[in-house]
Design a binder for these strands. Structure first.
Length: 299
RNA sequence: UUCAGGUUGUUUU
């Protein structure tokens, strides 16, 4: 039963709820974890109704079953339904609260999200991150800034890698350069974050999206171990800024670099750069070599 | 073995 439960979980992580469900349906005996894993599989796949249906058939759900149902509604932006389940829970954990808050954020109701957030009996780094990222995505920088200050200054919590990745990415999406620079400051004060290639990649992308291609290049060149994503974000940044030739030059450098191989995303960037620079023949050449030389198939 | 935040994508996303 442990093995089958693990398979349900594995398929759910591949966003393949049908395979999860097949294992679930064929199991002769199921336990609580079986149900919880399957509810979560439906929730992650964006099917809160299927999650709820399974949940309703359970004789004695535990808090994880409830939380998985909340997650389904939250991901779908159905915050009010999440809340009404939440209200009827016999016991709640910090995950329950955080999930409902994220549902309101997803639904765009930052006021309700904040109200619940303020009523939480306990908050952890995840709760803080979700709320701050929620504000940042909507460009509500005063609120985001104030919360970040309180989190670091009053609570003494330090953002971890996931927190800064989410924050930096949200800054890029909403184009809030000033706040992004502040987050960059926090990163520079934490050696583990400063050394992280993933974090640097997110910064390169953020500066590009905020229109600061020079700063993006500066961060990019400072990365000692550039991975495929580092090259991809820089390439796209140059292409989006209309620097098609420089983007293609970067692609040439990438091919000489050790330990990295171009992937499908790289070629979208390369072809985009060609399209924007009007380089039809060169684009066609890259499209051909993509398949013959790099083994990347068009999708 | 199961629950909340995770960096790169061409299009009016």
């Amino acid at each position: 039963i442990f093995v089958q439960n693990s398979f349900i979980d594995l398929f759910s992580k591949c966003l393949d709820p049908n395979s999860s469900r097949k294992v679930f349906d064929e199991m002769p005996h199921r336990d609580l974890v079986t149900y919880n894993s399957m509810i979560s599989a439906h929730a992650k796949a964006g099917d809160p109704d299927a999650a709820r249906e399974l949940f309703d058939g359970m004789a004695s759900p535990d808090v994880i079953s409830y939380n998985a149902v909340l997650d389904g509604y939250a991901r779908a932006g159905r915050a009010d339904e999440a809340f009404s389940v939440f209200e009827h829970m016999p016991a709640r954990t910090v995950v329950s609260w955080t999930t409902v808050v994220s549902g309101y954020i997803k639904a765009g109701d930052l006021v309700m999200a904040r109200m619940l957030y303020d009523r939480m009996p306990h908050r952890n780094l995840v709760s803080w991150t979700i709320m701050i990222v929620g504000y940042t995505e909507r460009g509500l920088i005063d609120e985001a800034s104030a919360l970040l200050d309180r989190m670091v200054g009053v609570e003494g919590l330090r953002p971890d890698e996931v927190a800064v990745l989410s924050l930096v990415s949200a800054c890029g999406e909403s184009g809030v350069l000033g706040f992004g620079r502040r987050v960059h400051g926090h990163i520079n004060n934490a050696p583990a974050l400063r050394k992280s290639t993933r974090v640097s990649n997110a910064l390169v992308d953020m500066y590009s999206k905020c229109g600061c291609i020079d700063e993006a290049v500066k961060v990019f060149e400072s990365i000692p171990n550039k991975d495929t994503i580092s090259w991809n974000v820089m390439l796209q940044g140059l292409a989006n800024h209309g620097h098609g030739r420089q983007a293609l030059g970067l692609f040439a450098r990438m091919q000489d670099a050790a330990n990295v191989l171009p992937d499908g995303v790289t070629f979208v960037g390369v072809l985009c750069a060609c399209a924007r620079a009007g380089l039809v023949d060169e684009g066609l050449r890259h499209f051909t070599s993509m398949q013959s030389k790099h083994g990347v198939a068009p999708k």
